[in-house]
């Protein structure tokens, strides 16, 4: 999938199982939105194939669209339309829509039901967007960054709703750059960057990785040049050292107490004064860092 010279999706191949929540995780510009929009039939891939519910999303679009629910990033309603009026309109395009008032209440849209779209807060616009994706009772839902910028309470409400969708028999594909969202919600996580699939698996599979864990080193003065390479050499094969910034790095690998001791010795020899040395289980964030060499949320 290319836009002019830029390649947005590159040889990316993945499958989504029914009745699951799948998270596509990646930093901004990784190709998450392009991936979703290709599944939604907005873009025709230059190479490769896409099947959604067994249908070609471009050629068989009219058969596919009533069966899926879509929440786009950014707005998707007229500036002058009232929140609940918009939801009611979308419901009228479907044969068996959800009860609009109940759905609105569930997403806390009751208070702003008569407010024009342009005066809704960003969070309210996002919740309306999610409601618009769900009101037609789709069997497959594509939600692009459903909770970006939402406050924690509303984020939890949204998560519960997405979990209930799975329980009730729908399939959810969401993009996110929030680790905790992927860890909490997803049955499967696909990590992508630069349009390539870097890793796939359940959150547990991705974070467990055998006996792999992490050691985080935070120092008071910047590391000397070449520190990651020298530390890696001191620790031996099977470990990865990633510099997070000039004052912290993370060691990934079969890290245990003896590794911790070796890190400490390396610090002493290299005149590095650690402020903290901590041993921890690998998080998705660490996985992501190791895979891409960059932080998820810049």
């Amino acid at each position: 999938m290319r836009y002019g010279e830029r390649t947005a999706l590159d040889g990316l191949s993945l499958a989504v199982a029914r009745h699951t929540i799948t998270a596509v995780l990646g930093p901004n510009g990784a190709g998450k939105t392009t991936l979703l929009e290709t599944c939604e039939g907005y873009r025709r891939p230059q190479a490769g194939s896409v099947r959604v519910l067994g249908l070609d999303p471009v050629r068989e679009r009219q058969a596919l669209l009533p069966r899926i629910g879509v929440m786009l990033q950014g707005g998707q309603a007229w500036s002058g339309v009232r929140a609940m009026e918009m939801l009611r309109h979308v419901a009228s395009l479907h044969a068996h829509p959800l009860d609009v008032d109940e759905l609105g209440d569930r997403l806390g849209l009751g208070d702003c039901g008569r407010t024009p779209y342009r005066r809704l807060s960003g969070g309210q616009q996002q919740r309306l967007g999610l409601a618009m994706a769900l009101v037609g009772r789709p069997e497959l839902v594509f939600v692009d960054e459903p909770t970006a910028g939402l406050d924690p309470a509303i984020r939890r409400t949204t998560w519960e709703l997405l979990e209930q969708l799975r329980t009730d028999g729908a399939t959810v594909v969401l993009t996110t750059h929030y680790m905790e969202e992927a860890e909490r919600l997803a049955d499967h996580v696909h990590v992508i960057d630069h349009g390539r699939l870097l890793a796939s698996g359940s959150p547990l599979e991705l974070t467990r990785g055998g006996s792999v864990s992490t050691i985080r080193v935070v120092v008071t003065r910047p590391f000397p040049p070449g520190a990651p390479e020298s530390l890696r050499a001191a620790l031996g094969d099977g470990t990865e050292v990633t510099l997070l910034d000039e004052l912290s790095l993370v060691v990934t690998g079969p890290a245990d107490a003896s590794t911790l001791a070796r890190v400490s010795r390396w610090c002493e020899h290299n005149d590095v004064v650690p402020e903290s040395l901590s041993l921890g289980r690998r998080t998705l964030e660490d996985v992501f860092l190791t895979l891409t060499g960059r932080e998820l949320v810049p």
């Binding site: 069966r67 339309v81 009228s92 479907h94 068996h96």
Partner: peptide
Amino acid sequence: LDLSPRPAAAPLPRQVLAHAGMEARL
């Protein structure tokens, strides 16, 4: 709220009428 899937488009004439009414109101 029962979120079990039951997808189907409304009959096209009903969709068109709803959309015409919406755009005229706006």
